[in-house]
Design a protein around this nucleic acid. Structure first.
Lengths: 209, 209, 209, 209
DNA sequence: GATGAATGAGTATTCATTCAT
DNA sequence: AATGAATGAATACTCATTCAT
């Protein structure tokens, strides 16, 4: 009993003809295609036509949803950034300052990376334009690390032997690199080894012995 | 477009065709212009005409010395890489395995960065194409760090608590980031603070407490 | 109760297909937007989207009322042309051939310009496509001027010293230019000076001394 | 006895291979193609590819010689303008203020139009972009006419009955229109009739009876 | 070796127009 | 009638690379 058919009138309960004209859905498809292609080939390795084609729409449609290629990247990066910060903040908040903060942070970071490989490659990968935004995340992270460290030094909780700025850059570089390295091939290390190692390094670098 | 080069042709005993002083100088000027422009604007921000113009030669001359833009970058990166490895190896060798190795290494790295800011920006900066080569340096570095660490663990000189691969990536990311951050504006930290901090972090991360 | 403007055709009791108040209003809004935007930016400086947006309707609605952008222009130009001719004819008719014809004509022209600056800019301004229509008005004007002059020459009322075709083009060029120049900034000359000067020039050029 | 001679290779006395790589010649060909195509179809009716093709060069070559399409037009217009002014100035100068000035001026204008039909169509034709430059010529002309008239009125040589600004616009509009009309088809009037009519109109409009 | 004019494929972007809803 | 998302042809402009001189 063929169910097909249906033109002008009686629609089955299920909407079989996926509404082709759904702006939000199209935009989402473009974002998805952008995430994937940017992760694979970088901003310059991808044309707006590529993205449109991957999303299954015509070339012009791209510009109905984004001013230009850079804007698509900006949106992706901004969304990604927000998502990541949210995760990290939540992890840190839960541990509210206890020593548990570091393992939670590591765990949140690694889990984010595992779930959003493409986003990590875009953000922390090596594409100038893209990582200009990634850089902002890292800079933000570095700044907050540096500030918290300065506060602790002032409070006498920590020796002043390490320059807070240098240290924070170091941590941030370390995290980004490890995570970017890992997402290229998650078999390179187990989730646990990764979390454990990141945690130990941070503790050894940032806490007084 | 013939890509092949002389293949089975017997090469004369005499080494490469005696490079005209002029030709060598032109090539050198192109390399210098490339170093500067790539550092400033990245591979995609620079045209072959730009480089030729900066070197004071005609557009076509560029292709007399380099197959294409990518080759110029490759040559620059290779030279840079060799230079950096040489410095680092020398520093490590001098300290031959003593605990002095780490400070020497840090010092060599920082001094290299101070002398070759453009090269560091090209190698460790965030330009996809360019740092594909920079990545190779870092990968090489990471590999040798990982190997040496594995050897020490095997020899019982070090606990197996940290995954050698993760750790080596971490170190390499940390060094690259700190150095790249610093060359953007060397007033961000004094040479000494930089060396000291890098040294301490590496020691804390890599040595048993 | 519409006071339809009778022509010669007997209209059925029921007016044209009862134009929905809405449709007619939409069309009118599009015409108004078109007049304004074409006057400001020329045919090429305006998109069909611009016009629709200015009229407060969706892009597709434009094509419900006009076959394409050119048609909108054509309609505007035609209406404008008809309006202008009507005014000029009326002025000339009232003076029925008396010497008063010229001042009346000038006055009618200047007053039309004052009331319909946008239309004058579209018609006599310098936009290729648009003024192809304006050109038609002027050509028509020139033709009738040339004809009337030829008649007078034949009737011996005027010397044959001036080529009627050249003269009519001259008059038409003169009028269009002066009017277009004036509407750009009506403070450039008072209405009276304008009318007076135009009148004198026409008289001196077209009447025997 | 050919003196030529030359490089390493014996060149025939005549240079048969017309040097294909002559920048000046290419630029000239592009200008010529531009003049013709702009005159025929206006700025918007012509693509840079069209012009390049008409000049017998590749699309990219266009941009080797002109920044963009608008620049080509600007150059053409500027050259044309200069040429026209030169002719008109010369004609006026020769007659140095005598009543002969007007006929000389008319003659120069008509002869210029006869020789450079394309240029006249570009300058005085109805293409917005193009005639923005043409407009400048006319404005300049109008200004100088207005000034000279004002001087004469001040000197009591002429009645103040006609507004100098309106009058100058009128003259300029008249001349441009007549000339543009004529070049479309020079059979519309003989050179002499044209000159004669233009002269008489100007005299009647600008001189006291 | 060097020159620099020429090439032409590549790409981003616009916009008139259509059509399913 | 109206909507507005989608289309895709059109086009300006760039730039790596070639090659005759």
């Amino acid at each position: 009993m063929p169910v097909s058919q249906a033109r002008s009138r009686p629609e089955p309960a299920t909407q079989p003809p996926p509404p082709r004209r759904d702006a939000a859905r199209t935009r989402e498809r473009l974002l998805a295609s952008g995430r994937q292609l940017f992760a694979e080939r970088g901003l310059h390795g991808v044309t707006s036509h590529d993205i449109a084609a991957a999303a299954g729409v015509a070339a012009g449609t791209f510009y109905l949803h984004f001013r230009d290629k850079a804007e698509l990247l900006r949106v992706i990066a901004t969304q990604t950034t927000a998502l990541l910060r949210e995760r990290l903040d939540a992890a840190t908040r839960e541990a509210h300052g206890s020593r548990q903060g570091v393992p939670s942070f590591s765990e949140a970071l690694v889990d984010f990376a595992a779930e959003h490989r493409d986003l990590v490659r875009i953000l922390f990968g090596r594409d100038s334009e893209a990582s200009r935004v990634g850089a902002a995340v890292l800079d933000g992270l570095a700044t907050s690390i540096a500030e918290s460290r300065r506060a602790r030094i002032a409070a006498g909780e920590m020796p002043a032997s390490l320059d807070p700025d240098v240290l924070s850059q170091a941590l941030v570089g370390l995290l980004a690199r490890v995570v970017a390295w890992w997402v290229e091939d998650p078999r390179r290390a187990s989730r646990e080894a990764l979390i454990d190692t990141l945690t130990r390094i941070q503790l050894s670098g940032t806490h007084p012995t």
